[in-house]
Nucleic acid binder design. Structure first.
Length: 138
RNA sequence: GGAGACUGUCGGAUAAUCGCUGUCCCCCACUGCUUGCUGAAAGCUUUUGCGCUGCCGCUGCGUAAACUUGCAGCAAGUAGUGGGGGAUGGAGGAAAGUCGGGGCACUGUAGAGCAAGCCGGCUGUUAACGGCAGCCUGGGGUGACCCAGAGAAAGUGCCACAGAAAGCAAACCGCCCCCCACUACUUGCUGAAAGCUUACAUAGCGCUGUUACGAGAGCUUCCAGCAAGUAGUGGGGGGUAAGGGUGAAACGGUGGGGUAAGAGCCCACCAGCGUCUUGGGCAACCAAGGCGGCUCGGUAAACCUCGGCUGGUGCAAGACCGAAUAGAAGGCUGAAUCCUCCUUGCGGGGGGUUCUGCAGUUGCUCGCUGCAUUAGCCUUCGGGUUGCGUCGCUUAGAUGAAUGAUUAUCGCAUCUGUCCAACAGGUGUAACAGAACCCUGCUUAUAGCGGUCUCCUGCC
RNA sequence: UGGGCGGUCGCCAAGCGGUAAGGCAGCGGCCUUUGGAGCCGCCAUUCGGAGGUUCGAAUCCUCCCCGCCCAG
């Protein structure tokens, strides 16, 4: 079981610098309640920029990574924000094996996203992934 | 049955799949460190051996090692990271708001006073509190119950508009008494004028003698003066707080006496205050009785007074490791005196006291601490670093931050099957909401399920 | 997470115990052929919400709601 559905910390983006880099230079795609930013991960492309990061933090594997941003502006209640983040993570966990490898994804929630049901979130995120052409060819 | 009051409890259960995360154990890979072994290399400061040197000693040189230094490989241990496997733990009643209290940590000063802030019936509870429990007093409610709580006779301030007056009590209107002036009325006296009568009797006025006239007397009317009284107006002096369309609030209430008018001025009852005694209660306070003065506005969530509590800052506290760097400018650095040591002495060293200067704390004062000499202290500016660092830290515990998705059964709620029960089927499985140092309260948000009690209505 | 500041008309705001100034905007009128300018008038169901203190609260007290700022 190599292409599993696990989502450990190495498949998540955990640094603010990565978030900012992906959001500013990556391709962006918008739907009603979410904003998706993607960037191919090139380990040796920018050695000067990523000197601190690439040495120690970049993983050995080539799988896609995800980062989720939900600010308090989206919803003031922490429980709602947590639930939405877990749901997005669950969707990515299931879809990851079918996605292109070597990509970093950042999903930013917009106002009203915390009011959605799980099925609606799933539809929207899948549509976004398809529009960003992140699925494998086969 | 309806309407309420108070209070308790709970925040679904079991099983399964995939996934997240803390700790522990095992395996693999990588990295660091330590130790040992092996290998090659370098060095002669130290130790030892050998050679230059027949023997001994010293020195020097060279060389070697089980000596030193770093390097490589292997093995073991240890730590970290990643992966795999196993075991075990993983959000709440409010985790929330961050409102109160405490622990804990630091702050060279945490010490005193003032200031500042908070609290405020009493007793208990507690580590502490503004919490809780019981009680006391006052107010609200038909009631179960609820709400409030030091001091307004220590002082200051404020009480808009209205109102005579808003707090010391007086002024104003009004009421009453006295005096003066004026006016009106009444009564009495005096005077003058006018009108009427003057009969009878009789010794009875003058004149005339036919009527009549005059004087006098009586009566009536009017005028004037004086006196007294009453009423009114104005002025002055005094008494009074009963009354005075207001206002949130107006100087005890009712009745009687009393008075020029009135008034606790006096009396009875009632309300209230102060004080004393007795009794009850740990206390707040309550009850009874006596005495007193006669009665005292509200506001302290205005200043304030009294009593109590609080030093400040807060885990981004703080401790440690690693990495990195570059400093510059400015300011301050005294006196007096005593003791002691060195010295012939000059002089120097050490210590103490007093004052002084600078710096330090929370606002101020005192006090305290450091420094007062050739190295320190302070201020300002500038430069560097900032790591998924470690600890603090947690029988949940991170540092982009762990609980999600789905299914089955039961439970619960609701709908349908003619009402109830049972049964069957459908739907939903929630709401408020997510720990970041911990504990304890309060407040706020929210789905149910009870318990006790009160009021109203109906039936038996 | 901790600390601090604020909320008054559509906008900017004064007032801080005695019943809410002012400016811009808006509406109506006058003026003008018309518009602008000018002049006059109107415009706060009560001051973010709810309780409390007080005779009386935008103001004082308590609890909530919302917004902003600072600290790695």
């Amino acid at each position: 079981m190599t292409s599993d559905e696990k989502l450990p910390r190495s498949r998540r983006i955990t640094h603010r610098q990565d978030f900012l880099r992906i959001q500013s230079t990556g391709r962006r795609c918008r739907s009603a309640h979410f904003l998706l930013a993607t960037l191919p991960r090139v380990n040796a492309a920018a050695p000067q920029d990523a000197r601190h990061v690439s040495d120690t933090l970049l993983p050995e594997h080539d799988d896609a990574r995800i980062g989720i941003t939900i600010t308090t502006k989206v919803d003031k209640r922490a429980a709602r924000r947590n639930r939405l983040r877990r749901r997005i993570r669950e969707i990515f966990r299931r879809e990851r094996a079918r996605l292109l490898s070597g990509r970093d994804l950042v999903i930013i929630a917009l106002t009203g996203a915390t009011e959605l049901e799980f099925v609606s979130v799933e539809d929207e995120v899948r549509t976004l992934l398809r529009r960003a052409r992140l699925y494998r060819r086969n």
